[in-house]
């Protein structure tokens, strides 16, 4: 029997292959990359019986459709959406069987932005620096999927026996720890930051979440010497409108970081749509 594959019929606006990324190479200028909504990636993999670190498909707003060459199973998590397998509606957030040759249609996100499609066995493209993730900043990993692309799948393991409760309340709050350069900003800016309501900008992507709202003014005009950047860093360029660095962020940057978003709230960033309002909260201590 030939190795199992899927053939992409329609990649939607943007569908990429994602796993847990390639941390450990930032000193070479390599972004960490990986699924923006990490809990959704892990959950989708658990549902189909994969290792949590297996590679899945990450969609953006409009879903994806593909044909499976062999029988298998899949689970969709992250942004809620309709899913059809061989023209029949199936459940979101659950392992569902896929017959050989079936067309799978993952619909547009009804709530949130990015859905995660795990296939039993995982997407088995060749890893680069230990990861199969597409890095949109540096071009590492497989390019964004196109119609006609054929992706190999790994050998599926046994189906998991235990069911999982899949529920997430979409909170619209980003909690952050101040620093490392909060002292570059005025007291007023720090006051505005805590409780500030920001609108998600249309130019947001896997590299950064662009926010529009209260202007965060600096008290220093000096230019910051290029500094290493972390996931969740809230960088403030001269226009005072913050950018939250997401998984494909550059490893260094030249604007001061006023605070860093807590890792538990990165999934909120992953699922925020352009036009959504998010409240920033500064944590004490």
């Amino acid at each position: 029997m030939p190795d199992p594959t899927i053939e992409i019929l329609d990649p939607g606006a943007l569908t990429t292959v994602q796993d847990l990324g390639r941390p450990g190479h930032a000193h070479l200028g390599v972004p960490r990359s990986g699924a923006l909504d990490e809990p959704a990636l892990r959950l989708a993999n658990r549902l189909v019986g994969n290792e949590e670190s297996a590679a899945v498909l990450e969609t953006t707003l409009t879903g994806v459709s593909f044909r499976a060459t062999q029988a298998g199973r899949l689970a969709v998590t992250g942004a809620a959406c309709t899913i059809r397998v061989a023209q029949r509606s199936v459940a979101w957030g659950a392992a569902v069987p896929v017959p050989a040759g079936a067309v799978v249609e993952v619909g547009a996100a009804a709530l949130g932005l990015r859905s995660y499609v795990a296939l039993a066995g995982g997407v088995a493209v060749v890893p680069v620096l230990g990861s199969r993730s597409t890095d949109l900043l540096s071009g590492l990993g497989p390019p964004p999927l196109r119609t006609g692309d054929v992706l190999p799948l790994g050998a599926p393991g046994p189906a998991p026996s235990a069911a999982e409760v899949v529920r997430r309340t979409p909170e619209r709050v980003l909690r952050l720890d101040l620093g490392p350069r909060a002292d570059w900003f005025t007291e007023e800016a720090l006051d505005l930051l805590d409780g500030g309501v920001y609108t998600v900008g249309a130019a947001s992507n896997r590299i950064g979440l662009r926010l529009a709202g209260p202007v965060l003014a600096r008290r220093r005009d000096a230019e910051l010497a290029t500094e290493p950047m972390v996931l969740g860093a809230v960088q403030v360029p001269p226009n005072g409108q913050p950018v939250v660095f997401l998984h494909d962020h550059p490893t260094t940057g030249g604007y001061p970081v006023i605070g860093v978003v807590r890792s538990v709230d990165l999934a909120v960033c992953a699922q925020a749509r352009p036009g959504d309002h998010l409240t920033l909260r500064v944590l004490d201590g």
Binding site: P23, A26, H27, P228
Partner: peptide, 15 residues
């Protein structure tokens, strides 16, 4: 540390 990252005037320990 998972990452040790130098830049112009700083070194980051991350992870």
């Amino acid at each position: 540390a998972v990452e040790v990252v130098p830049a112009a005037r700083t070194v980051l320990l991350d992870g």
